[in-house]
Amino acid sequence: MSAVLTVDGLVKHFPIAGSRSVVQAVNGVSFSVAKGETLSLVGESGSGKTTVGRCVLGLIKSTDGAIGFHGRPIDRRRNIRSRELRGKLQLVFQEPAESLDPQVRIGNTIAEPLRSMGVSRPDQRRRVREVARRVGLRDSTLEQFPAELSAGQQQRVGIARAIVTDPELIVLDEPTSALDPTARAEIIDLLIRLQQELETAYLFISHDLSTVRYLSHRVAVMYLGMIVELGTAKELFSHPRHPYSVGLLSSVLLPNPNLKRESAVDLAGEIPSPIDLPTGCYLAGRCPFADDRCRSEMPGADTVAEGHTVNCFKHRDALRGHEALDYFDDFQVEAEKLLGAGRR
């Protein structure tokens, strides 16, 4: 499998007006996404996952690091806007209602990305009808305005608009977090089906772990602008190694009171400010396993299994306390239950 997208040592600092310090939104993130693969970025708000998505599309200029699309760089000059990459990279927004022009009929909204690609009108129309059917929109819907559609349908329009150009990579920026559970399940199903049919690579940005578990091949856990753990969804959800991942996974409330959600990792305190980050591991102040080394030295990536890396000195301790809990199966079962609800 060749990588569609490679991100290497991505750094993004936002300057603060009237100050010499910066907000360190992303601090050296590296990953790759292969054809037909879904990589999820998970983390709390402020962990930098959306910023990574924006940098990948070239919407904001990265401070350092390299982003490659099929091995060739994406930057301020060569990005989603440039003719060469137009249509190859796509984006689906979190709020479907706000990303669709209320004044424009659905059919024309879906055709929008084609307009600047030199596609003839009849071809546009044919293509729009084709993708509309593909995402489950009726032909009559194409004549309607966004406000006449439900949120779920609006998001289908957002997805139709993204796949209309036959992209190789779609950045999905929390595409389901504004939807109710039924609509969410339908959209997730749709995304999975489309990926199987079109072999599109997804960069899925979310904090909704059950959704992430359900559709990701690999998962990257982000904390304060860094990937602290990266592995296959199965590995990561069944044997989380990083104390932060463990804490994050155990913090999810699954709607099943019989599941034990005990955890030895109790992350106390607040996230440090991304303006002045501590030396050493950023989690040290909140981590029950932290020792002096954690506080003074930044842990590098440690490969614990094939394709599973953890940035932690103490990941063995974290794992030991947790071997009994198999989050993966819990999530599997619950996610099936939850997301299966919307399936016909």
Binding site: L57, F93, E112
Partner: peptide, 9 residues
């Protein structure tokens, strides 16, 4: 919506 229109070139 405008950001998207811009991205479409």
């Amino acid at each position: 919506l405008i950001r998207y229109a811009e991205m479409c070139g």
